[in-house]
């Protein structure tokens, strides 16, 4: 679980008391559980993604059925159920149900997209400006600085940042614009090197200068001092900051602003957004960062996943409205509170 997911859970925490055991016994369908996983067919000729999601859904279904089996009257006598008795954290049933609804919505829209349904994504000015920034740097003959956040590789925002790096590296390689990618942790460095190398190779550039992707420091203030110094010396034409940032965000962005670079930032760290908005020309806010790779690639399957995400957002907004009205009217919507409680 990443930090945002924990926070989302935490926000709804302590809003009510769980009666999961009752919910499970009342709502679980009574159907045979054996072989739920094995019966899910793998479609011949389907691509990796298609096969994988089928396996995942099968595994999920089987796991859920087998583990919950022990809680259901009459089913615990089955050999599989008794063998795996108590393997499921019953108190997290609500999280599992919500996860399945969410995953189902995303997968449904991905399938729709693969069948040719048109997916509209509103224009994101910050991403449209990436090409403009590269063009400006090419014209001026100055480098572009790309920072994939200051988180390690286990942070999903870093992955989102690295996804955008691939696109930026490809365009800079095409126009022979120097690229600088200073990183704070070694693992993102290794990933960034691979991404830039692949992008350069695709554009016919075989040599990757060691200065392009470099490990700078393992501590954020040492890192910001080094990056600030580099920006003042090299005066980049454009600076792109995409990923997780902490207190160093303003230290870097303000130096970039003083050098006259066009600056594009994107982060899902709410406490750093005001700094980027004050110091940068364009800022991707929260989910826009995660949507960036889908937006830039234009891959319908990835765009489809955004649609599924929007559906979940509508459901949560509806729950918030219903909950607010219910509480304001003096009713106690216990089931709604239980649904969003994290354990």
């Amino acid at each position: 679980m990443n930090n945002e997911s924990r926070l989302l859970g935490a926000m709804f925490l302590r809003m009510g008391q769980v009666r999961v055991d009752r919910m499970v016994s009342e709502r679980m369908p009574r159907r045979p559980i054996v072989g739920a996983c094995c019966n899910t067919p793998l479609r011949p000729g389907s691509d990796t993604a298609g096969s994988l999601w089928e396996v995942l859904i099968g595994a999920f279904t089987g796991f859920w059925m087998v583990c919950l089996g022990s809680s259901l009257p009459g089913l615990s006598t089955l050999p599989a159920a008794s063998q795996f008795a108590g393997l499921f954290r019953v108190e997290r049933t609500n999280a599992l149900v919500l996860s399945l609804i969410f995953a189902g919505a995303v997968l449904w829209y991905i399938t729709q997209a693969r069948r040719g349904a048109k997916m509209y994504v509103r224009p994101i000015p910050g991403l449209s400006a990436v090409d403009e920034a590269v063009g400006r740097a090419t014209e001026m003959g100055r480098p572009i600085v790309f920072i994939p956040g200051t988180g390690d590789l286990d942070e999903i925002q870093t992955i989102a940042g690295l996804s955008i790096l691939g696109r930026v590296a490809r365009v800079t390689a095409r126009y022979a614009t120097p690229l600088r990618v200073p990183v704070l942790y070694p693992l993102p460095m290794a990933a960034a090197q691979e991404i830039v190398r692949e992008a350069y190779f695709d554009e016919g550039v075989e040599h990757l200068d060691p200065q392009t992707v470099q490990y700078v420091a393992g501590e954020s203030f040492s890192y910001s001092a080094r990056v600030g110094g580099m920006m003042l010396r090299e005066r980049p034409a454009a600076a792109i900051y995409m990923g997780q940032f902490t207190a160093e965000s303003l230290l870097i962005a303000e130096v970039g602003q003083s050098t006259g670079a066009i600056q594009i930032a994107g982060t899902a760290s709410p406490d750093q957004l005001p700094f980027f908005i004050a110091a940068c020309d364009y800022t991707l806010i929260g989910e826009e960062l995660y949507a960036a790779s889908a937006y830039l690639s234009g891959d319908p399957r990835m765009l489809g996943s955004l649609k599924g995400q929007d559906l979940m957002k509508v459901l949560i907004a509806a729950a918030v409205v219903v909950g607010t009205i219910a509480v304001s009217a003096g009713w106690n919507p216990g089931w709604l509170l239980t649904m969003f409680e994290a354990k």
Partner: peptide, 30 residues
């Protein structure tokens, strides 16, 4: 809270894309 909920859903959606192999841009592909 609005930003956080949106970001959490975005993160979950991206995680799902990565786990299912739909999202490969972080490998330098796509």
């Amino acid at each position: 809270r609005g930003i956080l909920i949106g970001a959490a859903l975005g993160a979950a959606s991206m995680s799902l894309r990565i786990i299912l192999g739909v999202e490969r841009t972080y490998l330098g592909r796509g």
